[in-house]
Amino acid sequence: MTFSPELEARFEKFLAKYPADRKRSAVIPMLVYAQDETEAITQELIEEVAKRCGVTPLQVDEVVGFYSMLHKKPQGKYHVQVCTNISCLLVGGEELWNQACHKLGIGHKQTSADGRVSLEEVECMGACSWAPAVQVNYDFYHFVTPGQLDKLLDGLAAGKKPEEIADVKKVSC
């Protein structure tokens, strides 16, 4: 299996981090980064990671189903994650989630027909003091209002990149 030079370089770094007889440690980091490139964790990827880390495909598969970020089904180009855990719940996280589902006509872990946007109701994402929070791919959005969510979803559906959408700013650097 071939990957981009950037991902290959990353894999090389991963494998160098751990003792020579502990390559298995690289399984999870490899999967997390590889799925961004391959869009999903395929059987081919499982076998490739198994080979590179010196474990069996089953040992990789055991891991895939355990971690909620690892996915065998492709997600949208923009994966919109709405937190509804307690801190967000108290300040409207659930309403944001319902709004997103309603607006896109899709539900939890579903992807829009054009493949641009997928939705996931997620557990606490570590933005409790700046709730309600939303993540688009790996970018955080704090203190999200229903109006901002509307703009964000409209913009993404219209083919814009998140950074091109006015009034909605990611917070992380």
Binding site: S25, I28, Y33, Q59, E62, M69, E123
Partner: peptide, 27 residues
């Protein structure tokens, strides 16, 4: 020193589960 990425599992905040995860296993 090196970073290691998790992949979404609250249980890995428990120290021994974290170590399992760090070793490439289920948490």
């Amino acid at each position: 020193l090196a970073t290691h990425s998790g992949a979404g599992a609250y249980e890995c905040g428990e120290e021994s589960a974290l170590l399992e995860s760090l070793e490439g296993k289920r948490g």
